[in-house]
Design a protein around this nucleic acid. Structure first.
Lengths: 220, 220
DNA sequence: CGACTGCTTGAGAGTACTCAAGTACTGTGG
DNA sequence: CCACAGTACTTGAGTACTCTCAAGCAGTCG
């Protein structure tokens, strides 16, 4: 299994068996964070590159008056903390207990073939983040509240593979990701449930009840 | 002047004098497009890397029902058309008469030191695009119509350096960039004018009349 | 079991949208 | 150079969607 293949199953559970062909696993240090802990702060010096092993992470950006935008959620296999400048432009926070692998940015040059391989992974990930960012801009700028929530649930469900998915983030996180308020998210979830498109078991566990009809609501 | 320095004056007029230390200028071919012409289409195979020489370009993404989101505008010095996959995820269209330099992606490997230098420029530009995308998500998700328009005018003005700036894009383009309607853009522009924060001479030429007070409206 | 936090629901308000009309540019032909 | 047509922009009135504020309900943890 190449690192690329390993990386590509974004959001799936990555096998925890050691893979010595993967420089991230071989050279990376492990860090653990508890619910709500800050992995790095906005404007903090960007020293490390991160990869989620288990748990989930949110990347948040704040306006001075406290308004918050979550630019992305990272799941097992995802790289994050990639910055072009010297500082992190967004904060990263643990959505639950999180385990991450880290490598030093400055060490990349010293690692020979491993460094080259890691740089290729980082480059690939940066490009994927950019694509996701463009998709997300379209959602934020041009989709209705209902479409936003439908998209979101559909995405999360797709990443999970399993029929039932569990949301690792709060309604507030979802709202800040979709550019809505918590109340609107709640109302849209209720509406999609009443229409029989999704089914919830508690407020975190859900499944897509009618994928075809949900897709019509997603606006692609 | 290094290529990086050349690249970094995003939005300024790039001197047209040949610079043989810049591989883009030395190896790139020139293409010209007229108002509204498509430089490449959404889903078209991504063969080339582009750099704006003169004029301005918009990158647009469409939903199937025609709703449009402009993810960015590119000005002289900006690289665009950088894709991680095989196809362009957004279309690029000329906002006026445009001149661009292009290099073949597949040729990069064959160019030796020049290829390495070009790859570094592309990498740098991809990172900058990602940062801009994150800023833009915050704007789309969390700013009011008035703040969006204030931000936009402030940005354009900053890029121009000159006191008076000319908008190369239509109100519809601005609306699709900010996630608003054309009427709302128009009303906000009028409002900012009435408050004496900006001054317009016709509907395309403007200047910041009161930078400090405009900054308060920008929400950073 | 009770307290706390997080989620949902309701009523009312406000911002941005839609539809429609009017005004200013731009370019072309007389 | 001016008149005209066509396009782009602005303004107005009314509507709709999302937000705000407030209360009630559910899920979680000690």
């Amino acid at each position: 299994m190449t690192p690329q293949a390993n990386f590509s199953d974004r959001g799936r559970i990555v096998p925890l068996t050691a893979n010595l062909a993967d420089p991230f696993q071989r050279l990376g240090g492990v860090l653990r964070f508890a619910v709500g802990e800050e992995i790095y702060a906005q404007e903090e010096e960007a020293d490390l590159i991160y990869r989620v092993v288990s748990g989930a992470v949110r990347a948040t950006r704040l306006l001075s008056d406290g308004r918050r935008q979550i630019s992305d959620f990272y799941f097992p296999g995802d790289l994050f903390g990639l910055e072009i400048g010297l500082v992190h432009r967004a904060a990263a926070e643990a959505l639950g207990d999180v385990e991450v692998l880290v490598v030093k940015r400055r060490a990349l040059k010293l690692l020979g073939e491993d460094g080259v391989q890691l740089e290729r992974m980082i480059w690939q990930a940066t490009g994927e983040h950019l694509e996701r960012a463009h998709d997300h801009m379209l959602l934020l700028g041009r989709k209705s509240a209902c479409e936003k929530v439908a998209c979101f649930l559909s995405d999360i469900s797709d990443r999970c593979a399993a029929p039932w998915a569990v949301l690792p983030m709060s309604r507030q996180d979802i709202a800040d990701y979709l550019g809505l308020t918590i109340e609107t998210v709640s109302r849209m979830v209720t509406q999609l449930q009443q229409e029989g498109l999704v089914e919830f078991d508690g407020c975190r566990r859900f499944r897509i009840a009618h994928r075809a009809r949900l897709s019509e609501r997603v606006a692609a």
